[in-house]
Design a binder for these strands. Structure first.
Length: 577
RNA sequence: GCGCCCGUAGCUCAACGGGAUAGAGCAUCGGCCUUCUAAGCCGAGGGUUGCAGGUUCAAGUCCUGCCGGGCGUACCA
């Protein structure tokens, strides 16, 4: 089913074309900026007036006059201000739409027209170290986008492009070999990847002989020496266990099967360079093999290369990323490839995408860098703890869950401990995810424990609380009364809630297109607010039978919208909290 | 130097590719629990959207120039 905004755009658009004769005039329908203007407003008349040489108000009147609305969706269309058309929807049509969805909740978010195959590259931690708060954004944004695209019927291929092949693994392997690869000591040491890395780094910086062994280890590893590969494997497996543990706690859908490790491309890199050479794109400069593209300029305006092979013969992440582009385009046959990666890598991706296009590596695939801003400390610098290390993601989650546990224990002491633990787990994790997802992904944001772990206002607990209120009502429902159809919208809060619910598919479509999860968060917060106001002002169970059944229908629909919407954020709902 | 991103209430953030009177939360102040969970609801105060121009019916949003911040800018990822 067409969503409300699309349907209105189509209707007003047709009328606008009739009135102006201009084929591509955009009605520019948006949700009303103020409730007194109605439900939606069409802003496109004023722009069209300029193009057709007519007065905007007069044209708006003409558009309203030629509006054909056979389905009876529009209750009123009024010209206002300089040439806005304010649209109010018909209550009956809204209720019919709502009742239709009650019969088939999947229709709340209908599938997109054309299913596509879409790669979503996200999370991509460096396996040399433990995941820290900086990895949260890419992980949860990518997860949300994957869920949204899947929900719309697209085939999503998640790719976790973990860093498992860089020079730092030489250092780690050298350190492992000194501890003893089979020793129990190593096993315990590896339990804290972060301190293991720090220890190796310390030796690397302090001991030149160790540094040499580390460098040699990289060469051995990448050359395929079995002992070094075995040591590497032990470390990688341990690190991956840690990542999967974090994903499981976060409720993020990334699986081991989604791994797209850098090491996977080791054998393809030579071929990538050869291909570029055969295509005449390669040039040697200062001993390195590079692709020069005119749009990229360096410090003094001199040409800036994309280096694909270092002067020592080694390959770089550009080369790996090109190999990945090729795989995604040719082998996976994706239509769209999204890279959910830190904005600081914009230039890198511009370069990789440009080289890939020049080399015809992604002929039928769009390449999109879904950039996100940096997490900053209160000092305005990228986030670090006092000791200079980033906060571990695991520690943030622990803290969130423990604060949630304290709170639920105060709010609901009568629940037994295991249930409070379960609630705390959901609430704490959801709060952290939502704190990140609800911000515009492009802006840098200041990491702050109290914002991150806030449980009031525009937070996940607010949304979850709305759900528990719904579920509590439904639990108390007498057996004989079933889910009623929505029959009346007497109070403004009822109508506002229904309209808000029916707007979910518009938002989901927008998120799929623009890749901004915060739009979905904003919407769900407004939806929850609409439900809270409905709940506070409209008695449900205590209402007289017909009203009660109608409000129950509305409540069920709200439950669906909240549950499905939260599901797209990767947040599970709760029965009570 | 050049490039990208950003500057909105005391703080943290919104504002649906230019729309009408810039909205929330936190914090502050005041009201609402013998009625479906008060992690809630209602209300108050708080703004020259960094500054200055420009474009047009309309600018937080687009253009230009400043000021301030972050990041990037040839062999790390």
């Amino acid at each position: 089913m067409e969503n409300l905004k699309d349907q209105l755009s189509r209707l007003v658009g047709a009328a606008l074309r009739d009135a102006t004769g201009i084929a591509d005039s955009d009605p520019n329908v948006i949700t009303a900026s103020r409730p007194e203007f109605g439900d939606y407003q069409a802003n496109g008349v004023m722009a069209a007036a300029g193009r057709s040489g007519r007065g905007p108000r007069e044209l708006a009147e003409a558009v309203v006059g030629s509006l054909r609305d056979d389905a009876g969706l529009i209750a009123s269309a009024e010209v206002a201000g300089p040439g806005f058309i304010n649209l109010r929807l018909n209550d009956q049509a809204l209720m019919e739409r709502g009742n239709g969805i009650l019969g088939d909740p999947r229709m709340l978010i209908p599938p997109a027209g054309k299913p596509r195959k879409i790669v979503v590259d996200h999370s991509s931690p460096n396996l040399a170290k433990e995941m820290h708060v900086g990895h949260l954004r890419g992980t949860v944004i990518g997860d949300c986008l994957s869920l949204v695209l899947e929900r719309l019927g697209h085939e999503v291929i998640r790719q976790n492009h973990v860093g498992d092949w860089g020079t730092q693994f030489g250092m780690l392997i050298a350190h492992m070999r000194e501890i003893g690869e089979d020793s129990d000591l190593l096993r315990t040491e590896l339990e804290d990847l972060e301190s293991f890395y720090q220890a190796a780094k310390k030796k690397f910086d302090a001991d030149p002989a160790f540094a040499d062994r580390a460098r040699l280890s990289v060469v051995k590893l990448q050359g395929g020496h079995p002992d070094y590969l075995a040591a590497w494997r032990i470390f990688i497996d341990e690190s991956l266990r840690h990542c999967q543990d974090i994903y499981a706690r976060l409720g993020v859908g990334l699986k081991l099967a989604d791994l797209d490790a850098e090491s996977r491309y080791n054998d393809d890199l030579e071929g990538i360079v050869r291909q570029l050479e055969e295509q005449g794109l390669l040039r040697e400069s200062q001993g390195a093999r590079c692709v020069f593209l005119p749009r990229f300029k360096g410090k003094e305006g001199e040409p800036l290369p994309v280096i694909v092979q270092k002067s020592d013969g080694g390959y770089l992440y550009s080369t790996t990323d090109l190999a990945a582009v090729k795989l995604r385009s040719h082998d996976l046959a994706a239509d769209r490839s999204l890279y959910v990666v830190d904005a600081r890598q914009s230039l890198h991706f511009q370069q990789v995408f440009a080289v890939a296009r020049a080399a015809g590596m992604a002929a039928n695939m769009s390449l999109e860098h879904i950039a996100y801003g940096t997490i900053m400390g209160s000092d305005g610098r990228p986030y670090r703890t006092r000791s200079g290390d980033a906060v571990k993601l695991a520690d943030l989650l622990d803290e969130a869950v423990s604060r949630a546990f304290e709170l639920v224990s105060v709010k609901n002491p009568e629940l037994d401990e295991s249930e409070r633990r379960r609630i705390a787990d959901t609430v704490g994790i959801a709060a952290v995810k939502y704190a990140d997802l609800s911000k515009n992904r492009m802006s840098d944001y200041v990491f702050d424990w109290s914002t991150m772990l806030s449980f009031e206002g525009n937070t996940a607990p607010y949304l979850l609380y709305a759900c528990t209120r719904i579920k509590s009502v439904l639990r108390k429902l007498p057996n004989e009364s079933g889910a009623g159809k929505i029959k009346t919208l007497v109070l403004a809060e009822e109508r506002a809630l229904l309209l808000k619910i029916l707007q979910l598919p518009e938002v989901v479509a927008l998120v799929a297109r623009e890749c901004y999860p915060n739009l979905l968060c904003n919407y769900l917060y407004e939806l929850s607010g609409a439900f809270m106001r409905f709940y506070e002002s409209c008695p449900i169970l205590k209402a007289e039978a017909e009203t009660r059944d109608s409000r129950l229908g509305l409540t069920l629909l709200a439950e669906q919208a909240l549950e499905q919407g939260l599901g797209l954020l990767g947040i599970r709902t709760l029965e009570r909290m």
